[in-house]
């Protein structure tokens, strides 16, 4: 099947009536995602994109049975939106918003502890189950249903990998964009674990970048628990230390979070590491013997 989102997901859009929310909600609906409504405080009772608008997430959940939410609200209000969704009983929260203050995310992450909810992002392209549901901003046409899972910190680099896979005849089970911020809801390891446990995923592409220790953590987990081949790439082999490369989290702080160190650890843990981003699809084909 897939992980996180699929045909049966009932999705609400937070920040539904804003320009970003409107544009991407239309795209999601066009792709076939079951968008059941949206939330914009103060606009409850109205209709947008032929769907009901609610004042609060809890009302939206009550009236529509929504279990997935996607967040497009501005950075200053996004952490609040995450907590509102969790409080309302949403099971999967996908936060697209870029630029949320770290302090807000520390609180939001703490608030989610112990609740039955999974946060993807923030600052991510979302989650895509081809042929099932697009809960994000990814371009639908590059995806095709299939059996390769993709985990990545970045947007366009994910598209690059997916495009290569599709063109070589490898469809995708689910692509998870986990986000490029210092604090994110779902780590590389957790996303890999979801796909490793998914009976409909045969292989995993894991794309990371400089900064932090998430790829190393995932690699060690894979070494102990992996049952499927993993192809890995780390962006930022040429990034100098101490400089932030776009993403708030993409900065080399010490000797352990360079691309080189991460690639070494990943290779030691049995991941098929490619040094060129042009070879992600090719490597997967090679590993699967097809």
């Amino acid at each position: 099947m897939s992980v996180l989102v699929g045909k049966n997901s009932k999705v609400i859009v937070q920040g539904f009536t804003g320009s970003e929310g409107t544009f991407h909600a239309s795209q999601m609906i066009e792709y076939g995602t079951n968008v059941v409504g949206g939330v914009t405080p103060g606009k409850g009772g109205s209709t947008h994109l032929d769907r009901p608008v609610f004042n609060t997430v809890s009302e939206a959940v009550q009236k529509t049975g929504a279990d997935v939410s996607i967040i497009f609200v501005p950075p200053a209000f996004a952490a609040d939106a995450i907590m509102e969704s969790a409080d309302a009983g949403i099971k999967v929260i996908v936060c697209i918003t870029e630029g949320i203050p770290t302090k807000d995310m520390i609180y939001a992450k703490e608030y989610l502890q112990g609740k039955d909810v999974r946060l993807i992002g923030p600052n991510c392209p979302g989650v895509m189950t081809p042929g099932g549901a697009k809960v994000g901003i990814m371009p639908g046409f590059i995806f095709t249903p299939g059996r390769i899972g993709v985990v990545s910190k970045s947007g366009t680099l994910t598209y690059e990998a997916v495009d290569q896979l599709t063109k070589l005849g490898f469809g995708q089970s689910t692509a998870i964009g986990i986000g490029g911020d210092p604090i994110i809801g779902t780590s590389t390891k957790e996303a890999v674990e979801l796909l490793m446990n998914d009976p409909d995923t045969d292989g995993i592409v894991m794309i990371g970048e400089i900064g932090g220790g998430m790829e190393a953590e995932a690699a060690h987990w894979i070494k102990e628990n992996g049952t499927k081949p993993v192809v890995g790439f780390i962006a930022g082999q040429t990034a100098p230390p101490g400089r932030r490369m776009g993403h708030a989290g993409a900065i080399v702080g010490g000797s352990d979070d360079t691309a080189e160190a991460k690639m070494r650890i990943m290779a030691e843990c049995g991941i098929h590491v490619v040094s060129s981003p042009a070879e992600i699809g090719k490597k997967m084909a090679e590993v699967l013997g097809k």
């Binding site: 970045s154 947007g155 970048e209 930022g236 040429t238 490369m245 042009a278």
Partner: peptide, 11 residues
């Protein structure tokens, strides 16, 4: 995109 930009530097 930041990730693709870093990957492009690498290539």
């Amino acid at each position: 995109g930041a990730g693709l930009a870093m990957a492009t530097m690498d290539i």
